[in-house]
Computed example of a mutant assay.
Amino acid sequence: MPAEPIQSRAAILGHPLHPVLIHFPVAALIALVGSDIGWLLTGDPFWARAGLWLAGVGALGGWISGLAGLVDLVSVWRIRRLITAWCHAILAVMLLSLASFNWLLRLGEPEAHIMPWGLYVSLLTAALISITGYLGGRLVYEYAVGVDIEEALSRSLRP
């Protein structure tokens, strides 16, 4: 762990925005795999409509969260010099491009392209989320990006 934490520039009251914003898009894109499988097993159009919404929330929410991460990447030199940060960013752009493509596939006719492309892209996106999330975790736990070490230590020392 570094001698001092790496502060986020995209933060509100010291709380970094990127980790706050990323949870809903990640959940939506993981749930998209489930909705595609639900449609595959049942043929119920509900699952196709749900997939359209999940893909949209995942793509748009991910891009919004990504902007907060991009602010930190380009404006904080200690983040910018980390190879892990660049790998995280590049994979995030790849997965958000796939998520956006998946959403565009579903616009107009949500059921038309679930098989095979929609499901394939959903699975590939979920795999990229796991790798990108792992790298994001490394940024927090190994480099203390956006972590207030003094507050964390004071909380761990409380009875």
Results as ranks from 00 to 15, higher is better:
Met1Cys: 12
Pro2Ala: 14
Pro5Leu: 05
Ile6His: 07
Gln7Phe: 12
Ser8Lys: 09
Ala10Arg: 06
Ile12Thr: 12
Ile12Asp: 05
Pro16Cys: 12
His18Lys: 13
Pro19His: 11
Leu21Ser: 05
Ile22Trp: 02
Phe24Pro: 10
Phe24Cys: 08
Pro25Arg: 05
Pro25Trp: 01
Val26His: 03
Ala27His: 04
Ala28Lys: 05
Ala28Ile: 05
Ala31Ile: 13
Ala31Met: 11
Ala31Leu: 14
Val33Ala: 03
Val33Ile: 09
Val33Ser: 02
Ser35Trp: 08
Ser35Asp: 14
Asp36Pro: 00
Asp36Ser: 04
Ile37Gln: 01
Trp39Gly: 07
Leu41Ser: 14
Gly43His: 04
Gly43Val: 07
Pro45Asn: 12
Phe46Glu: 09
Trp47Asn: 01
Ala48Gly: 03
Ala48Tyr: 02
Arg49Val: 08
Ala50Leu: 10
Trp53Ile: 15
Ala55His: 02
Gly56Leu: 08
Gly56His: 03
Val57Ala: 10
Ala59Tyr: 00
Trp63Gly: 07
Trp63Lys: 03
Trp63Leu: 12
Ile64Phe: 03
Ile64Leu: 06
Ser65Asp: 06
Leu67Cys: 15
Leu70Glu: 09
Asp72Gly: 01
Asp72Thr: 06
Ser75Thr: 13
Trp77Glu: 00
Arg78Asp: 06
Arg78Ile: 13
Arg78Leu: 06
Arg81Thr: 11
Ile83Trp: 15
Cys87Thr: 15
His88Asp: 13
Ala89Asn: 14
Ile90Cys: 14
Ala92Thr: 14
Val93Asn: 07
Met94Ile: 13
Met94His: 05
Met94Pro: 04
Leu95Asp: 07
Leu95Ser: 12
Leu98Ser: 08
Leu98Lys: 11
Leu98Ala: 14
Ser100Gln: 08
Phe101Asn: 02
Leu104Phe: 10
Leu105Phe: 08
Leu105Lys: 04
Leu105Pro: 04
Leu105Ala: 05
Arg106Val: 09
Arg106Gln: 08
Arg106Leu: 07
Glu109Leu: 00
Glu109Thr: 07
Glu111Ile: 06
Glu111Pro: 10
His113Cys: 02
Ile114Asn: 00
Ile114Glu: 00
Met115Trp: 15
Leu119Pro: 01
Tyr120Cys: 00
Tyr120Phe: 04
Val121Thr: 07
Ser122Gln: 01
Ser122Trp: 02
Ser122Ala: 14
Ser122Pro: 11
Leu123Phe: 02
Leu124Met: 05
Leu124Arg: 04
Thr125Trp: 08
Ala126Asp: 09
Ala127Arg: 13
Leu128Gln: 05
Ser130Pro: 01
Gly133Asp: 09
Tyr134Val: 06
Gly136Ile: 13
Gly136Gln: 09
Gly137Asp: 11
Arg138Ala: 11
Val140Phe: 08
Tyr141Ala: 02
Glu142Ile: 10
Glu142Met: 12
Val145Cys: 09
Gly146Lys: 01
Val147Arg: 06
Val147Trp: 02
Glu150Gln: 12
Ser156His: 06
Arg158Ile: 06
